[in-house]
Simulated assay, not measured.
Amino acid sequence: MSIEQQGVAVIGGGTMGVGIAYVAALAGYAVHVVEPDDARAAAMVRTVEATLAGAVARGKLDAAARDATAARLSRVATIEELPEGLAVIVESVPERLALKEDVLARAAARAPRLLATNTSALSIDRLAASVSDSTTFLGLHFFNPVWSIKLLEIVRGAATSDAALDLARQFGAAIGKKTITVRDVPGFATSRLDFAASLEAMRMLEDGVAGAEDIDRAAVLAYRHPVGPLRLSDIVGLDVRLEVARTLEAAHGPRFAPPAILQVMVADGRLGAKSGRGFFDWPA
C-alpha cells in the first residue's frame, strides 16, 4: 500500500502538530490528529480553516481543493483510537522527555511503518529506548510555520534502518519538503545554528545594544532571514526555547546557556505568541 492508502497520524494538535497535519492533508493523505483537549482541538480546526481560506484568497487553492483538504483531517482523543499499520506516525508533543517517552511507547503499539518524533534537541537514541522496534524510528524535525518553510531535518538514530530512512525521505518529498539527513547529536544541525542566533539576539537586547524591532530588522534585511530571531522565538514559544537551551547547554557548554532575560520572561508567563506577550505583543 502507498502512504496515501495507509494514512498518517500526528500526535499533538498544537502549533507544530497542526502544521504537520495541514501539509500532509494538503498533499493528499488521510490524516488522523490525536488531541485529547477539546479546546486545543477546536483551535486546531480554526487554524486549518483560516490557513485554507488564506490559500484560496491568494489563488493557491480553489474551493474544491480547500474542502477536500479539510475532509482528509480527522481528530481522535487518544493514541489507542488510531488505526493499526499506518504508514507514518509523527509525535509532536511538548519537549519533555518523560512525556515523549510515554507517547512514543503507545504510538509504537499501533505498529506504524515509520514512527517519528518532531524534536529540535532531544536524543533520538534515548527516545528509541521507549519504542518496541527502534529500526522504524527516527527524528523528523519540522520548522514553524510548517506550511511555509521547505526544510525537513531527518535525524537518523543508531538503529534506524535504511528502509525507514527511505520512507522518511519519500514522505518529506511528497509533502513538498527538501530534506537533509543528520546524525543524532544534541541540537542536530539546525537547532544549533538557530540557537546561536536567537540566544545572541536575546543577549543583545539584554545589553541594550538595540530594541527588539531593530535587532530583528537587521537579521531580516542584512541576512535575508524570513523572520527575525526574537519574533521567531515568540512564535516557537519562549518556554520551548528555554527547555532546548538547557538541553544544549548540558551537551555543548555555556555558549548555549539561556540568557537571564529568557528565564525571567518564562517565569513571568511571557511565553510569546501563545500567551499574547513575549519580546513582542501578540493580540488575540
Rank of each mutant, 00 (worst) to 15 (best):
Thr190Ser: 15
Ser191Glu: 05
Ser191Val: 03
Leu193Trp: 10
Asp194Glu: 14
Phe195Asn: 07
Ala196Glu: 11
Ala196Gln: 11
Ala196Ile: 05
Ala197Gly: 11
Ala197Lys: 01
Ser198Ile: 05
Ser198Asn: 07
Leu199Ala: 04
Glu200His: 05
Ala201Thr: 02
Ala201Asn: 03
Ala201Pro: 05
Ala201Lys: 00
Met202Phe: 04
Met202Pro: 04
Met202Thr: 03
Met202Asp: 00
Met202Val: 04
Arg203Lys: 13
Met204Leu: 15
Met204Asp: 11
Met204Gln: 14
Leu205Val: 09
Glu206Ser: 11
Glu206Lys: 01
Asp207Thr: 07
Asp207Lys: 11
Gly208Phe: 06
Val209Ala: 10
Ala210Lys: 11
Ala210Pro: 09
Ala210Glu: 06
Ala210Gln: 07
Ala210Ser: 15
Ala210Gly: 13
Ala210Tyr: 12
Gly211Ser: 05
Gly211Thr: 08
Ala212Glu: 07
Ala212Asp: 05
Asp214His: 11
Asp214Trp: 06
Asp214Phe: 08
Asp216Trp: 00
Asp216Gly: 08
Arg217Lys: 13
Arg217Glu: 04
Arg217Leu: 11
Arg217Asn: 03
Ala218Arg: 03
Ala218Thr: 15
Ala219Glu: 01
Ala219Lys: 00
Ala219Phe: 14
Ala219Ser: 10
Leu221Cys: 08
Leu221Asn: 09
Arg224Gly: 00
Arg224Ile: 02
His225Thr: 01
